Amino acid sequence: MRIFAAVGGLFMLVSSALALDAEGTIKNVDTDKLTITLENGETYRLPGEMDVTAVETGMSVILAYREVDNGVRQITDMLLPE
Score class of each variant (00 low, 15 high):
1 M>F: 12
1 M>R: 14
1 M>Y: 15
1 M>E: 15
2 R>G: 01
4 F>A: 07
5 A>W: 10
6 A>C: 06
8 G>H: 04
8 G>S: 05
8 G>C: 03
8 G>P: 00
9 G>S: 09
9 G>Y: 10
9 G>N: 07
10 L>M: 04
10 L>F: 11
11 F>P: 00
12 M>V: 02
12 M>L: 02
12 M>W: 08
12 M>Y: 11
13 L>P: 00
14 V>F: 13
14 V>R: 13
16 S>G: 05
16 S>T: 07
17 A>K: 10
17 A>E: 11
17 A>L: 07
18 L>Y: 15
18 L>N: 12
19 A>Y: 04
19 A>L: 06
19 A>M: 05
20 L>G: 02
20 L>C: 04
20 L>H: 12
21 D>C: 03
21 D>Y: 14
21 D>P: 00
21 D>Q: 14
22 A>Q: 07
22 A>M: 03
23 E>K: 08
24 G>I: 03
24 G>K: 07
25 T>G: 02
26 I>G: 01
26 I>Y: 06
27 K>N: 06
27 K>T: 01
27 K>R: 12
28 N>L: 10
28 N>Y: 15
28 N>Q: 13
28 N>C: 03
29 V>I: 09
30 D>L: 04
31 T>K: 13
31 T>W: 08
31 T>G: 04
31 T>A: 10
31 T>R: 13
32 D>H: 13
32 D>M: 08
32 D>E: 15
32 D>Q: 12
32 D>K: 14
33 K>T: 08
34 L>T: 10
34 L>R: 15
34 L>G: 04
36 I>Q: 02
38 L>H: 05
38 L>G: 03
38 L>W: 09
40 N>V: 05
40 N>Y: 13
40 N>S: 12
41 G>N: 13
43 T>A: 08
44 Y>A: 01
44 Y>S: 00
44 Y>D: 01
45 R>P: 00
46 L>T: 02
46 L>I: 03
47 P>Y: 12
48 G>S: 13
48 G>I: 06
50 M>W: 11
50 M>I: 10
50 M>H: 09
50 M>L: 14
52 V>I: 13
52 V>A: 08
53 T>M: 05
54 A>L: 05
54 A>N: 06
55 V>T: 09
56 E>V: 07
58 G>N: 12
58 G>E: 11
58 G>K: 10
58 G>S: 12
58 G>M: 09
58 G>H: 14
59 M>D: 08
60 S>Q: 11
60 S>Y: 14
63 L>Q: 07
64 A>L: 06
64 A>F: 15
65 Y>S: 01
65 Y>I: 01
65 Y>A: 01
66 R>P: 00
66 R>Y: 13
67 E>P: 00
68 V>W: 15
69 D>T: 13
69 D>P: 00
70 N>V: 10
70 N>E: 15
71 G>W: 11
72 V>T: 15
72 V>D: 11
72 V>S: 09
73 R>N: 07
73 R>E: 02
73 R>W: 07
74 Q>S: 09
75 I>V: 12
75 I>L: 03
78 M>P: 00
79 L>A: 08
80 L>D: 02
81 P>D: 14
81 P>A: 10
81 P>M: 05
82 E>A: 10
82 E>V: 03
